[in-house]
Design a protein around this nucleic acid. Structure first.
Lengths: 123, 123
DNA sequence: CTCATCTATTGACATTCTTCGATGTATCGT
DNA sequence: ACGATACATCGAAGAATGTCAATAGATGAG
């Protein structure tokens, strides 16, 4: 007969669940919430979107698409695509002025961002 | 002859660059740094990884892979894959104890995370 | 050494993402 | 109404990602 390898003891924590070889605190984030957070991170998981958001953060006044396109080596449809993703995750807002679309950072959403990090990683 | 549409005036900001129709502050994050930040966000852009990180954050003591596998509806190779991504982005650390691998949150890296958000979005 | 256990890696497959060119839509000026 | 400009959307190609089954590597017991 072969013995199961012994695991060192662990200090107790709250909200325990039985593990295959010990006792471990389960995650506090359910799958739905994890998907939401992952979606937010996903929106920032592209260098172009990071830089677009940084550009908008540095401009108090909204910025039009043509001005954004000029700052990147990408064509207008690609920039528009990235702006849409940032809009759909509420990181930026869009506003029409004549034929121009003006994008601005959405402080309400961006300021709430660190809370997610805190809830996930317990910062 | 067709006139170019007029754009409303914008308030001056620092570090100006000429835009197609106005003046806009350029991003302060270069492409290399944006790629690094995007890589960090990419590592968190999956619900399973978010929950794994949350699980590890809630356990002061390192947790072995089998205990992690038990908390998710995924097979061990998939969990191992996610752990590797979290390890390569320095969010977690790994340590061997016998045949078991123990994973723990990497506070040094996680605590530095909000700084990135601040640098990008000027929080 | 040999076997059993725990974890990592590989290969394959489906899905999603990024980008582009082409086209559609909205708005303004004439 | 017409044409021009600014932006969004569509369709497609190539790359990257997530998952599993199968396999390989590492470690400890006997």
């Amino acid at each position: 007969m072969v013995m199961q390898a012994e695991r060192p003891a662990m200090t107790p924590t709250t909200a325990m669940t039985d593990g295959c070889c010990g006792t471990v605190a389960a995650p506090t984030i359910d799958d739905a919430q994890a998907r939401e957070y992952a979606g937010w991170f996903q929106a920032l998981a592209d260098p172009t979107r990071v830089r677009i958001l940084n550009l908008l953060a540095r401009n108090v006044e909204p910025v039009c698409v043509c001005d954004i396109v000029e700052q990147f080596p990408l064509k207008q449809p690609a920039i528009s695509h990235h702006l849409r993703i940032l809009r759909e995750t509420c990181f930026v807002t869009a506003e029409r002025r004549g034929t121009f679309m003006y994008y601005a950072i959405n402080r309400a959403c961006v300021d709430a961002f660190p809370d997610a990090a805190r809830r996930i990683m317990g910062l």
